[in-house]
Write a protein that binds this DNA or RNA. Structure first.
Length: 275
DNA sequence: TTTTTTTCCTGACAGC
DNA sequence: TGCTGTCAGGAAAAAA
């Protein structure tokens, strides 16, 4: 389940591999992956374009081509692989045939990922599909004043706010738990009870954890061989997520698993205070 | 308007 | 072994 750090890792790795290559042709094997335009126009229009620039907003990958912007969301299990020859696999839904003879395959077991293709914009973040996307986790404008302004009147719980991409873009279920743990806050805390000081803590730890994870992802890249399916090594550093029953690294209390807003949520019931 | 629930999809796993 | 049922998850759409 790629969050901002994994998306950044995938993007950075692809940049080293396919920058300035031409898309000779494209094949869509499962139509619903392409949400705009339809898959026929998608293939027609992308043909002959080159991968020029590689950008990220939250969990979205943005490939700037010559005249178009290709926007991809991997959702839970989307991955890109590069092969020397076309490959048959029931989970490969889109294939890009590249000018160096390789094939970039989009692989997604659950078919949740989506691709969109729009006319290129000078600032790709201005595309209408990003209208409801908040500041990226690493954007300097994502700061404690911004976060406090966004959530201090909000009645839902803290974790829902962290997962809400219109507030801050790039946090998923795993890092939301890690951020709450580091900020010593119970994810069930009501957002309107979160203080400015708490927001400072949340923003600080969000950026720290995201940057650390990106660095760990960067380590993974060096072991890159023939294909790309970057998952990252950051899971080794997780303090609470998926650690039900294990001991809290700070106070040794057992980590609990609960459900918050329909999401599996891990926390230390001793360290994290409910507000 | 804001918040919650449902939907999409398949593999992994539990229980029989 | 093979079947059935449940769960996981991001975000859009629908419902509350």
């Amino acid at each position: 389940m790629p969050e901002a750090p994994e998306v950044q890792t995938v993007l950075s790795t692809l940049e080293t591999q396919i920058k300035d290559l031409e898309i000779l042709s494209c094949q869509v094997l499962y139509n619903k992956i392409v949400s705009y335009p339809d898959s026929i126009r998608f293939c027609e229009e992308i043909q002959g374009q080159h991968f020029r620039n590689f950008r990220r907003l939250g969990k979205y990958l943005i490939f700037e081509l010559d005249d178009l912007d290709l926007i991809v969301h991997l959702r839970m299990e989307g991955k890109f692989y590069l092969f020397d020859q076309p490959k048959t696999d029931k989970h490969i839904h889109v294939q890009f045939f590249l000018s160096d003879g390789r094939v970039m395959c989009y692989h997604d077991t659950r078919k949740f990922g989506r691709m969109q293709l729009y006319a290129h914009r000078q600032d790709p973040f201005q595309h209408p599909c990003f209208e409801h996307i908040g500041k990226d986790v690493l954007d300097p404008e994502f700061n404690s004043e911004y976060l406090y302004a966004k959530i201090h009147k909000c009645k839902k719980n803290l974790k829902s706010c962290l997962l809400d991409q219109s507030i801050v873009a790039g946090i998923g279920n795993i890092y939301a738990d890690e951020i709450c743990f580091s900020a010593l806050l119970d994810p069930r805390s009501r957002a309107n009870r979160i203080s400015k000081k708490d927001c400072e803590n949340i923003v600080f730890h969000t950026k720290r954890i995201m940057k650390g994870a990106m660095k760990a992802g960067g380590t993974t890249i060096r072991s890159y061989t023939s294909s790309l399916g970057v998952t990252g090594l950051f899971q080794l550093k997780l303090k609470v997520h998926s650690r039900k029953g294990e001991l809290c690294p700070v106070c040794q209390a057992p980590i609990k698993k609960i459900t918050v807003s329909q999401r599996g949520t891990y926390l230390c019931p001793n360290c994290q205070k409910r507000k």
